[in-house]
Amino acid sequence: DVEPGKFYKGVVTRIEKYGASINLNEQVRGLLRPRDMISLRLENLNVGDEIIVQAIDVRPEKREIDFKYIP
């Protein structure tokens, strides 16, 4: 289970102007929005990149997770 405040290694699977889709595994994925990137710009991400993200909002009833990137 993903817990708010914990850090996870994820893989960038899609990049859109509203954010990047991050997969932690086949069943768990979430969104990294541009506003939640401290020192990383969306255009510097590539599909397949592995990054460390922090879960900031977990809504299991909607199967949604928001991530934050902290270098």
Rank of each mutant, 00 (worst) to 15 (best):
S21T: 15
G48A: 01
D66E: 08
S39N: 15
I51Q: 00
F67D: 02
N44F: 11
E16A: 12
A20I: 13
D49I: 06
Q54I: 12
T13M: 08
G10L: 09
E64C: 09
D1I: 14
L45V: 06
I70V: 14
N25V: 07
E64V: 09
G19N: 03
I52M: 10
I22F: 03
N25I: 07
M37G: 04
Q27Y: 14
V11E: 03
A55K: 01
I22L: 03
V2T: 04
E50S: 12
R63K: 14
D36V: 03
R29D: 09
K62Q: 12
E50M: 13
E3L: 13
I56C: 08
I52H: 05
D49F: 05
V28C: 09
N46M: 14
E61K: 08
I38T: 11
D49N: 02
G30F: 06
N46D: 08
K62G: 09
N46T: 14
V2W: 07
P34Q: 12
E50L: 14
Q27A: 13
Y18T: 11
G5P: 03
K17A: 14
E61F: 05
F7H: 04
D57H: 14
G10M: 07
I65S: 03
G19A: 09
R63F: 13
F7R: 05
V58M: 06
L45D: 00
I51V: 06
N23W: 14
S21E: 15
I51S: 00
E43Q: 08
K68M: 12
Y18I: 13
L40D: 04
G10T: 01
R33A: 06
E61G: 13
E26A: 14
L42W: 08
F67I: 04
E61Q: 11
I65E: 02
R14K: 13
E3P: 15
D49M: 13
R63N: 14
P71V: 07
Y18S: 11
R14D: 05
V47E: 06
L45E: 00
G5M: 06
P34Y: 07
I15R: 00
L42N: 03
I52F: 09
L40T: 08
P60M: 09
E61Y: 06
I65L: 08
G30V: 07
A55H: 01
E26T: 12
I56L: 12
R59Y: 07
E3I: 15
E64Q: 11
R29Q: 15
G5H: 05
G5E: 04
Q27V: 13
K68P: 03
G48N: 04
V12Y: 06
G5R: 03
P34K: 08
E50P: 10
K68C: 10
G30R: 01
F67E: 04
S21V: 15
I22G: 00
N23P: 01
I52K: 03
K9G: 02
Y69R: 03
Y18A: 11
I56N: 02
P60C: 09
N25W: 10
L40C: 13
K17F: 13
V28D: 06
L24A: 01
I22K: 01
D49H: 03
K9N: 06
V11R: 10
V53Q: 00
S21R: 12
K68Y: 07
V47Y: 03
I65N: 02
E50A: 10
D57R: 15
G19V: 05
I56A: 07
A55I: 15
F7L: 06
Y69V: 05
A55T: 05
I56M: 13
L40W: 03
I52C: 14
T13N: 03
A20D: 03
L32V: 03
L32Y: 01
R29I: 13
R41W: 11
V2C: 07
N44M: 14
D36R: 03
R41I: 12
S39L: 11
I56W: 06
S21L: 15
I22W: 03
P4L: 15
E16H: 15
V58E: 02
Y69S: 03
V12A: 00
Q54R: 05
R14H: 11
R29T: 14
N46W: 09
V12F: 01
V11C: 07
Y18R: 13
P60I: 10
I51D: 00
I70E: 09
I22A: 01
E26Y: 10
I51P: 00
E43T: 08
K6R: 13
L24M: 04
G10Y: 04
G48F: 02
K6P: 02
V58T: 07
R63A: 13
L45S: 00
P34L: 09
R63S: 12
L40V: 09
I65T: 02
F67S: 01
E61W: 05
F67L: 09
L32S: 01
I65V: 10
K68W: 05
E26D: 14
N23Q: 15
P71G: 13
D57I: 12
N23Y: 14
S39M: 11
L42S: 04
R41A: 12
V58N: 07
Y8T: 00
N46H: 15
N25F: 08
I38K: 09
R41M: 12
T13R: 04
V47M: 05
K17C: 14
G30H: 03
N44I: 05
I15F: 02
F7D: 03
